[in-house]
């Protein structure tokens, strides 16, 4: 399953979703994700609230989530000396 917002793509591969603990659901502070009570797999329930914090991607042990295209610090000129 995939969804996009502007230039950002959020991809979730259900087949790789095997941690059995819905860790990403716990990591999501924005109620974008919910756990399926039976399978303990994650379900994407509210894409509108996603802030692209990437905590779900960071915690997933099986790399079932991939968020691409979000701007990062390296994309802009900014002053590092402060």
């Amino acid at each position: 399953m995939k969804w996009t917002a502007g230039k950002i793509t959020y991809a979730y591969d259900e087949e790789q979703c095997t941690c059995g603990a819905a860790l990403c659901v716990e990591a999501c502070a924005q109620s974008v994700l919910d756990a399926n009570e039976e399978t303990d797999k994650m379900e994407i329930v509210n894409t509108v609230q996603c802030i692209f914090c990437k905590l779900c991607e960071e915690i997933c042990p099986t790399k079932a989530i991939s968020i691409q295209g979000a701007l990062t610090l390296d994309d802009v000129v900014h002053e590092r000396d402060w």
């Binding site: 802030i51 979000a70 701007l71 610090l73 994309d75 000129v77 900014h78 002053e79």
Partner: peptide
């Protein structure tokens, strides 16, 4: 261009 927090805003919006 000096606003690192602005990136977050752009992603958000």
């Amino acid at each position: 261009n000096v606003d690192s927090k602005g990136i977050f805003t752009q992603n958000l919006l």
